[in-house]
Design a protein around this nucleic acid. Sequence first.
DNA 1: GCAACGTGTTAACGCTCATTAACAGAGCAA
DNA 2: TTGCTCTGTTAATGAGCGTTAACACGTTGC
Lengths: 192, 192
Amino acid sequence: MTTRTDALTRREQILKEAARLFAARGFHGVGVDEIGAAVGISGPGLYRHFAGKDAMLAELLVGISGRLLDGGKLRVADTEGGPDDVLSALIDGHIDFALDDRPLITLHDRELDRLRDSDRKLVRQLQRQYVELWVGVVREIHPTAPESEARIAVHAVFGLLNSTPHLGSLGRPATESLLRRLAHGAFAALSD
Amino acid sequence: MTTRTDALTRREQILKEAARLFAARGFHGVGVDEIGAAVGISGPGLYRHFAGKDAMLAELLVGISGRLLDGGKLRVADTEGGPDDVLSALIDGHIDFALDDRPLITLHDRELDRLRDSDRKLVRQLQRQYVELWVGVVREIHPTAPESEARIAVHAVFGLLNSTPHLGSLGRPATESLLRRLAHGAFAALSD
DNA sequence: GCAACGTGTTAACGCTCATTAACAGAGCAA
DNA sequence: TTGCTCTGTTAATGAGCGTTAACACGTTGC
């Protein structure tokens, strides 16, 4: 079949377009006909690839949470140096993610409650593990800050990094650099 | 009728409950029957107070944008001292808002595209003015930072401040103080 | 050649849900 | 009393939309 490195599977095409549309107008705001049209087939044709609209959302959300967590774990394990370097690696990774897959990031904290219980639990668990990854590193750097403060700070920095609405007039590298500085600045304030 | 200082009018009750429900499950995720039930009347009964479901959302979003902008203007005008003090006042005001009216803040950047064109334009204009208020102050403090950087930083700090999902185990004052420090820390990084 | 399968199509079903219709009672002015 | 307004009610309407049914056609394995 067409599973070369450059070509996307039909399934992957559908997921990509569905993510874009869901992020733009919300899960309920997009019809299956529209998703189908985005990949050149008809609405009911989607049911040859997914059990239903819910299944698409579930796969998207579980996928993004899993990739975020895996990427984070990898960076924590692979980074040599002190916790400062690890935190930098986590921030850089999250920025890449936020800029590359903004539709998915948007979905991630917007449409979670549309999932069936089991999927929602899974996503929440993955999210929690990702947060705790960050909290652990942050607490190494700021041992005096209580854990609850560190956790709120991590959530706040996620909000900061995920806020990029459009790359603005800055280019990609400048935006990355700016977000990096802002995130480090926020965490630095933890020791004040 | 009951328009004392403590009692809410029926309209206000409805708006309050609608805001809470919309924030929790999204505009399309909430039915009129549910909104009606939340204030003790039936679904169609709402139509005695609002032209439709869309009208409730419009009034909520225009209201929140307007109050944010008005509050910001007031603080800029009333604060004595340098731009640092003005920025502090803006941050404090936004934190109060984020903690007091979180449902509305959530709606604010989540359901904007459900509005009719005229309302959406109005809300966008109010939002833009609010952002520019901040950008002006930030640029006074960091004159070397280009305007596009300042604007992205302002958006990022909004994301940071609006990220509070639950007050967590910290109390309200401690959360306020923490968010304040994080926001100042992020802005401080603009001059790096 | 042919059965099986994968992947489409269009038409129809059924449910949800915003909105409207039709009606009713309380409070109040004349 | 009479009638008007305000604020509710329940029942009906009608559109939108996810899903399923029924059918078609190319490819592949035997």
